[in-house]
Design a protein around this nucleic acid. Structure first.
Lengths: 249, 249
DNA sequence: GAGTGGTCTAGACCACCAA
DNA sequence: TGGTGGTCTAGACCACTCT
């Protein structure tokens, strides 16, 4: 395969994993054994393992060994009618969401464009962490135009900028908007993938080789004016997005 | 930040990149310079650069230097009515699709389940590469139940298992199905992300640190019976999936 | 304590690119 | 040809986990 020694070693181990010679949870042969088997130096073996690690196949653990990864993604289901609702319902089943930040900020160019407000204008902002099992599976940054926040407060439903007096769920917020005369009508989501930055890695306890799914959403009301926009960063090995749509042929 | 030397070096470089001190396309300081600046060994600098590389921030190039990455994702747009159609229309604008393989296979357990046919039964299969700009941006594996393939051939539309006499586009295939009395009615897509395997890396010329978007699709006709299922592997830095749906509050 | 992986060094040689 | 990154070595010491 690759002309390099570590490439050959990585190839052999990869094949063995694919052949199920190493079951998820098991460890690969220890580094010293691989050094002897291939008659190479320690760093050469480690280069091979680093390759597999960044492919998301294994996770080296000090004192334990190089563990073959388990993958057990939890699906978040979107439907044609209301992706946000069911998405929220799903995450609530699996765990809790925690508002870690809520308040006012000024709109940077990207968010200003998405909310169609002037750059630098005051907007509502909250950051939430969604838990799935033990750890954080998704980090959600959500912004609201000021008049939406004020309408919700005026309608007496809660305060999006107050962590202690907050409408927790997506469903609640969307319902509150409807109560306040700004019923969400349409939502557009764009999904991409990239590698997490160290901060995201830390929050989600991301193993090396785990990409994140980026979901950018904008929700509008009847007159097409944005009522909220969200950027969510989800753990790629614990999340998926599913959508079902009708076709006409 | 990190207590390790290479962690500190990586941190400094990452910050500098974020501060735009190095513009995409430019090179980082060469390894020997960083060795001198931090008074460390060569491999320590390389460990730092490897970190940034696997975060997708830089791409080391022999004879050139460590180049800061450019990112220019192209959006593939799905709509409520027909995600496959517009998706295809978009990719056709940007490039060509190439059928690299077409024929009959036997269903493995996963595909058998998705097509609701017995494991090991004969099914149609084709592999396509979608080009966006210079390289392959998506690898698509598509399977059809045997009776669908035969119905299309009988309707005279083409032969899905024949590379030389093929209906090229998604739109065509879906229309042919409709002509053959198996009009697609609903499609369900599940999107996840992972790191590419070496084969996918090679086909897509993937830089290190580039994840792939996995799209699993199943399309059914009126009686809910599957007419096709597709697994697509897309370059994470060149693709995104967008969906727009209506809400009712 | 014995065994695992993690970090780091100093030096060597190779492969690629540009002027 | 000189500078870039890529591979590899032999050896050292550290950090962690299990028994």
């Amino acid at each position: 395969m690759s002309g390099t020694k570590y490439g050959v070693i990585a190839h052999d181990l990869r094949e063995a994993i694919n052949r199920k010679e190493f079951i998820p949870g098991e460890t690969l042969p220890p580094i010293p054994e691989l050094m002897a088997r291939y008659e190479v130096a320690r760093d050469t073996v480690r280069d091979a393992i680093a390759l597999l690690t960044h492919e998301g196949l294994v996770v080296p653990k000090r004192g334990i060994g190089t563990v073959v990864r388990e993958v057990d993604p939890v699906a978040l289901v979107y439907t044609e009618q209301a992706p946000a609702q069911t998405w929220q319902a799903q995450t609530q089943d699996a765990g809790k969401d925690l508002v870690v930040e809520a308040g006012w900020t000024t709109a940077d160019p990207d968010i200003a464009h998405r909310l169609r407000v002037p750059v630098g204008s005051e907007i509502g902002h909250r950051v939430r962490h969604f838990y799935l099992g033990v750890g954080v599976a998704q980090i959600s940054d959500q912004w609201f135009p000021a008049h939406i926040v004020q309408a919700i407060i005026a309608a007496g439903g809660g305060d999006l900028t107050d962590v202690d007096n907050r409408p927790d769920t997506e469903r609640n917020v969307f319902q509150l908007m409807a109560d306040a005369g700004h019923a969400p009508r349409q939502t557009t989501e764009t999904i991409t993938a990239r590698m997490p930055d160290p901060n995201e890695r830390e929050i989600m306890e991301a193993p090396p080789g785990m990409p994140v799914l980026i979901t950018r959403r904008s929700t509008t009301e009847d007159d097409d004016r944005p009522v909220e926009t969200t950027t969510a960063v989800g753990a790629g090995d614990r999340m998926s997005a599913t959508l079902t749509v009708s076709l006409s042929y």
